[in-house]
Design a protein around this nucleic acid. Structure first.
Lengths: 240, 240
DNA sequence: TGCGCAATTTTGTCAGACAATCATATAGTC
DNA sequence: GACTATATGATTGTCTGACAAAATTGCGCA
């Protein structure tokens, strides 16, 4: 077996030609594989192998890879192909900082524009999250709940551009988010922080909510980056 | 002649197969055409016509269009193809707001991280701009000078992620930037505002510089959006 | 053991094909 | 004559196969 070829753990049913644009299915499959770490950061994505595994043509694979590249999930090096994106510590730090200011904007817009129903829904998502954490649910579920929280915020902010940018940013740091929530005590802290944000939002205090949101992401960043620094690259190029 | 096909004004030498990846050349050609308004917002980009005009294969065209879509310069509607992106007033407003917070971040990073030489260069670019405005240079040149100013800021901020995001945002509002600078008195105001930013940066006053930068973009936004509102769609679908 | 060259792999691009979908024009109906 | 339904054409989505150029690998040679 040559250096590092794809492991087959993420083998989804070769992408049936069910309904939607085939390319979308390919993108979804690859995205899931990357976010679930079935494909490891830095790993090469060789077109021929993807063709075999997903059962679609090179045309489709290449378009999908380019889409993922624009999402920041893979990096396409000219004449060398695509690799799974692996943000360095510095990059990750930058991404978190950018996310902090953008989420602040989202919160401000939410307070200004969101429909009343969304204010209630925001509270509900926080309590859902709190319940999950209270009964010690696994990280994956907590993360999903947190995504719903941000999802409600974005929906209320009514800014497609913000939504698109933030989705890209979140995808790029997805790896680290799980890390952050795994630190002892962090889930409880997260609940407290989000409750604070929600409370400020409920009082229509945009400035405070926005600041709390930025704080929250900064704290998450510190935790995640710290963990990343400890682990410090458990995955160099060759690992045969 | 059918409804609205491409005008040939932007016909660049059919993209010679000179050196770099062909796709890059196609992307560059289309980007220039869009930013220069040779291709008008809302206009359909039919693959076959692009093939003929640029002399490359459909594969290449399609990949290029997808790249441009990820930059936000074109919008790809499934099953209907690509059209030149046309930001609505609301979208444009959002984009400017996002740009304001991100440029603020850039300025802050610049103050914290930039090499001394860049501080000097920043001053130089402002004075270049001032000179151009003073002798009433055309809008295109002034815009280019302004881009150099932002370019120096970005370079000093040393954040690839920020750079990438801002390039995308700037591309999307490019159309409006020209409009903004065409308003009487605006160029002189721009010079004053940028001088203020540069001065604050020179004093290493990150907070002030950052706030001034946000202000500057807000003002530009108001001017541009106002002009946009007046013009209010001089380009509906059919114009035979 | 180290280096350079050749064989192989992989990407970039092309051409042509086809089904599915969208757009338009035509014909039939009220 | 206006309106709807169908047919016709245009356009996109996807596939196949091909080839040159660049990168990678492996081998032979010094």
């Amino acid at each position: 077996m040559p250096t590092n070829s794809l492991d087959d753990s993420w083998l989804v049913p070769p992408v049936g030609r069910i309904a939607a644009p085939l390319r979308e299915q390919v993108i979804a499959a690859l995205r899931r594989a990357i976010l679930d770490l079935d494909l490891r950061p830095g790993q090469r994505l060789v077109e021929r192998e993807l063709i075999e595994r997903l059962g679609v043509s090179r045309t489709t694979i290449r378009e999908a890879l380019r889409d993922l590249a624009s999402e920041g999930l893979v990096t396409v090096v000219p004449q060398r192909g695509a690799i799974v994106a692996a943000p360095s510590l510095d990059e990750a730090s930058d991404l978190y900082e950018i996310r902090a200011v953008l989420e602040s904007l989202v919160v401000r817009h939410f307070v200004e524009r969101a429909a009343p129903a969304l204010f209630e829904e925001l509270d509900r998502t926080v309590e859902d999250l709190a319940a999950l954490v209270a009964r010690g649910a696994e990280v994956r579920l907590v993360l999903a709940a947190k995504d719903r929280f941000y999802g409600v915020l974005i929906a209320g902010a009514q800014s497609p551009a913000l939504q698109q940018l933030l989705e890209g940013l979140k995808a790029r740091v997805q790896v680290l988010r799980a890390t952050s929530l795994s630190e002892p005590g962090r889930p409880e802290a997260v609940v407290a922080e989000l409750r604070g944000i929600a409370a400020a939002v409920a009082r229509r205090d945009a400035a405070l909510a926005s600041r709390l949101c930025a704080d929250h992401i900064h704290k998450a960043a510190i935790t995640a980056l710290g963990a990343l620094q400890d682990a410090e690259d458990p995955m160099p190029a060759s690992e045969l």
